[in-house]
């Protein structure tokens, strides 16, 4: 104790910083450098821990291990007939041409496997689609997933019998994440990052309500079709559906807008 007091006295008797004359540039510089370092660390910490999308962090899902993210690869707003099938690049599909009749995705848990072309439309409206393999999903996981979907806006779930590598697959527009466990923390990260993310889903403001879409007693034409797609399927880029580009204003006038800037 006594020695402590002594030390303090000794220190206060030597005002090191005020002893020098003039502006203490070295001290100011050191303070500024340390502050700047702190700010940088703060910004970095935030950007690597938040999964909420914002103007400065538009696709937080890119931080998730194992994420597939190519939202610009997929053509939006292109519709196929109820009898047509689309040659998607991955299954469950994550984007591309789809049926104009979107599956209701306002917290609906479908108990049967659903037609891909109706489910893709839910992604265009900003929904998260949780698909699972009913034969390989771990016991208890179905309850966890149901809890994430039931009663939640822009969430939809359905079994997907051909899901092979992992029993659970999450889809958002142009995004996919496959996991083994419903308790995997990446499940919630995916939902936080991508549900209704305005930088990701194409049709800003669109609804998941589809009052005429059946949610029970699903008719055969709205169910998953396990048969291989034939030669008459619509290609991912829309093929003939998108061929009429002469009518597209963006194609004919976008150059002038750029020139205007």
């Amino acid at each position: 104790m006594a020695s402590g007091k002594k030390a303090k006295k000794g220190r206060s008797g030597k005002p090191v910083l005020t002893r020098k004359r003039g502006v203490p540039w070295l001290a100011i510089g050191a303070v500024a450098a340390v502050l700047a370092l702190g700010v940088t660390i703060g910004v970095v910490v935030l950007s690597t821990t938040s999964y909420s999308p914002s103007a400065s962090n538009q696709d937080p899902s890119l931080q998730i291990d194992g994420i597939y993210a190519k939202p610009k690869l997929y053509q939006s707003a292109l519709h196929v007939q109820s009898t047509q099938r689309v040659d998607y690049d991955r299954y469950p599909p994550v984007g591309g041409p789809h049926d104009g009749y979107w599956a209701a995705c306002n917290g609906v848990v479908y108990l049967v496997a659903m037609r891909d072309e109706n489910m893709v439309h839910t992604l265009e409206h900003g929904a998260i689609w949780i698909a699972y393999n009913p034969d390989t999903i771990a016991p208890g996981d179905l309850d966890i997933l149901t809890g994430l979907v039931q009663g939640q806006q822009f969430m939809v779930m359905s079994p997907y019998p051909t899901l092979a590598t992992h029993p659970i697959s999450l889809q958002a527009w142009g995004h996919q994440l496959q996991v083994d466990s419903a308790s995997d923390e990446r499940v919630q990260q995916f939902i936080t990052a991508l549900r209704r993310n305005p930088y990701v889903y194409p049709e800003i403001g669109a609804t998941c309500d589809q009052p005429t879409f059946p949610t029970t007693d699903i008719p055969a034409e709205l169910r998953f079709d396990p048969s291989p797609r034939g030669a008459d399927t619509i290609p991912l880029d829309g093929g003939d559906l998108a061929a009429d580009s002469s009518e597209m204003p963006a194609a004919s006038t976008s150059g002038s807008a750029a020139a205007g800037g």
Binding site: A30, V31, V34, L35, A36, L37, G38, V39, T40, I41, G42, V43, V45, L46, S47, S50, S54, A55, S56
Partner: peptide
């Protein structure tokens, strides 16, 4: 000690700044 305190202040400021920084 001063450096640690400053670093903490700066880090907090940076965290808060970037959470409000939405380009508005």
């Amino acid at each position: 000690l001063a450096a640690v305190v400053l670093l903490a202040i700066g880090g907090t400021a940076g965290y808060l700044l970037s959470s409000n920084r939405s380009g508005q």
